[in-house]
């Protein structure tokens, strides 16, 4: 390629014209359209930030469990009943005497017409601190409790976000109760 400089109006492929034009593109309408699109997408993007909460239903096993010689760490299963008066927490365990668990649960009354979610997390956190292998909580809401409140109860049971910014995991296995009507053989549960 030649190093000879090209003059005014000289293009890559030879002289095109003797006059040069400065063209100002009017970008304002394009800006307008793009801003509209942008705001629309921003609004939709916020609305579709959907997450999931995994839950299961109780299952019934007809067979006897196989004996396990391994020494297991003590764990408790917490049952959380939600009714009009408040939350009742009850702890049960296969390996710990009921007398030791009697004082761990209790009743958490409503405050200002709402469940005291922070207190629920605090009580569950105390249980978890004492029996670290505990993982399961069975939530038993009344039929008239709205789904939104059930989700808040599950949130309060799952981690310590409500009371602590460090956010430790509490009871990751959540079971919604009052669902299974039949066992594996199709027998009606009482």
């Amino acid at each position: 390629m030649s190093d000879k400089p090209r003059g005014i109006g000289a293009g890559l492929f030879g002289k095109e014209s003797g006059t040069s034009y400065e063209v100002y593109l009017n970008l304002t309408p394009l800006m307008d359209v793009m801003s509209n699109l942008l705001f629309f997408l921003l609004a939709s993007f916020g609305a579709t930030m959907v997450a999931i909460m995994p839950t299961t239903v109780p299952t019934v096993s007809s067979g006897e469990s196989a004996p396990n010689d391994d020494k297991k760490e003590d764990a408790v299963n917490v049952t959380m009943r939600a009714d009009a008066s408040g939350i009742t927490l009850k702890c049960e365990s296969d390996t710990i005497a009921p007398d030791l668990l009697k004082d761990m649960g209790g009743k958490i009354p409503r405050v200002g017409g709402q469940y005291d979610y922070k207190q629920i997390t605090t009580v569950l956190n105390n249980i978890k601190q004492k029996y670290r292998a505990s993982k399961s909580v069975v939530v038993v809401p009344d039929d008239n409790v709205p789904y939104e409140v059930v989700v808040k109860l599950l949130d309060a049971a799952r981690d310590t976000r409500l009371i602590d910014t460090r956010n430790a995991i509490l009871f990751p296995d959540v079971v919604l109760s009052g669902i299974a009507t039949h066992d594996a053989e199709g027998n009606l549960l009482k």
């Binding site: 930030m49 997450a51 999931i52 995994p54 839950t55 299961t56």
Partner: peptide
């Protein structure tokens, strides 16, 4: 279908 993924907003 005994397992559920409950959809919630973050």
């Amino acid at each position: 279908y005994p397992k559920f993924r409950m959809a919630v907003l973050m």
